[in-house]
Amino acid sequence: MTQKTELQGAPSAMSAAEETWYSGTWIDRIPQPVSITVLGALMLGVWWLIYEIEFVSQVLLPGPVETFEELWDATTNILTGGHVAEGLWITTQEVIWGFLTAGILGFVLGVVVGETRLGRKAVMPYLVAFNALPKVAFAPVFVAWFGFGVNSKIVMAAFIAFFPVIVDTAAGLAAVDADTLMLFQSMESNRWQTLRKLKLPSALPFIFAGLKTAAVFSVVGAVVGEYLGGGHGLGELIRFSAQTLRIDRVFALIVYLGVIGIVLFGIVAWTERKLLYWHKSDLLEVEGKFTAGA
């Protein structure tokens, strides 16, 4: 099955033409760790330059050094359990509860919508329409309904993260291969068997695409909720820092918001890799198209 071709004799050196053909010009041959580092340093350099020549007022745009100092302060504050740690913990909880609510509710309802004709015909168009709305605009409504505590932020996070999960789950179930479905029909498979043994497993790439979007969106939801609804989370700290023109602190706190999102996204992506060991590139293309549309 896997045949390895053994090269006979000593390998001869590549000609210059071959080398260009296989690995591109010298710029393409730079090792990735080097290119990433250089590009990062370049961006920091531009930032520092803009700061140094005061292209923008230094009050409005802090330099990289100031920002890293502030990031260091925020980190020590978190490690010693200060108010930043408290904010981080509150926002993390909001994100997790929002994500879990959206994930579970979106999955269950997505299955109901994708599995029923009524759902596909009547509910799906509404979902697509709702999905096109700027959902952050609902934040004041949720604050009015659920108050200034964590609840309104969890609802906001869940609301915004819910749509990609339900839409992708329903779409994944509907995208099942017609011939394979016919095969299951010929095996006299009942609805539950077809769902469990065919539709759900083949919809997994779609479902995980939805969950990955939800992981990012739930952070957005929580922060928007905090901007508008107060509380003690990172969003509120950022809003306050911006109002007092501590932009360096804003940047430092945004880094920690990013950490929440990246860790959650990483957990989802890791689970996906474990579960979808069978998933190969031809299906990835379908997934790619879908995430682009979501």
Partner: peptide, 19 residues
């Protein structure tokens, strides 16, 4: 009158479950 165990069927695509 419907699918039966004594009918075997095969399509142009192998329709194997990849997992």
């Amino acid at each position: 009158t419907g699918p039966r165990q004594d009918i075997g069927i095969m399509f142009q695509q192998p329709t194997l479950l990849p997992w």
